[in-house]
Design a protein around this nucleic acid. Structure first.
Length: 223
DNA sequence: GAATGATCATAT
DNA sequence: ATATGATCATTC
């Protein structure tokens, strides 16, 4: 068990050690068996990096490194540096904390300061050979915040009106809302437009790949 | 090929 | 049931 980092510098040092290593090299330190595919182990890579860096928040709704308030995100890319997937941020609070302010939201706290760890897959199924790129820190700028805040407020507005059924992945310039559940029959409590209790599919907030791609380009990726 | 909706594993 | 870690797979 690696201790949680007590300073940004300490985290930066640890993260820097990962650059240029393969997943196999990193997993070897923990004697972890590498899955042949992520098909049934979708969170495996992210959790491996968490272990290396000392993330201590478990599944609490707070940034991964609790002592320094930094969130960790792995960023799947290809060898050309192209982002391959959207980035999950957190669950959408559908029937809880309605009326909360942006700066008190989980989205804001998680995205305020993020350590991105790019991971490049070599081929179609070579997890072990995947290369870790140069990790980089990102602090949300005022301009970025205004867009993300607006995306968040628009989504929360619909939900508070009981119109979550109108929410779809096409909305939101940077932050979008998509299903987040074990399968499509899962339901969670919500309210309908008449204010009555209702059931709906759980949703999550995600960052569009276009946005994380721009962050990557701004940070001179070196593999 | 990108984007949306669906899904997988695990911890609490 | 709901939070974490996400990617898969079908549709557009």
């Amino acid at each position: 068990m690696i201790q949680p980092p007590t300073s940004i510098q300490q985290l930066a040092n640890r993260a820097g050690e990962l650059a240029g290593k393969t997943i196999a090299q990193i997993a070897a330190q923990f004697e972890d068996k590498i899955p042949s595919t992520l098909k049934r182990k979708k969170g495996w890579q992210g959790q491996l990096i968490e272990k290396c860096l000392g993330a201590d928040s478990g599944n609490l709704s707070q940034p991964d490194f609790s002592l320094i308030d930094v969130e960790l995100k792995t960023l799947p890319i290809n060898l050309l540096g192209k982002v391959q997937e959207s980035t999950y941020v957190c669950v959408v609070n559908i029937n809880n904390r309605l009326g909360e302010q942006w700066r008190d939201s989980v989205v804001f706290h998680k995205l305020r300061h993020v350590l991105w760890v790019p991971i490049a897959k070599q081929g179609k199924d070579s997890l072990a050979d995947s290369l870790v790129g140069t990790p980089f820190f990102w602090e949300m700028s005022e301009q970025q915040e205004s867009i993300i805040r607006s995306d968040w407020e628009n989504a929360m507005e619909l939900i508070s009106m009981g119109s979550i059924h109108q929410l779809n992945a096409g909305m939101g310039e940077i932050l979008q809302v998509r299903p987040k559940a074990a399968h499509s029959r899962v339901v969670t409590d919500s309210i309908d437009e008449q204010g009555n209790s209702a059931l709906t599919l759980p949703r999550g907030f995600y960052l569009r790949p276009q946005f994380t791609q721009s962050l990557l380009y701004q940070n001179l990726l070196v593999l």
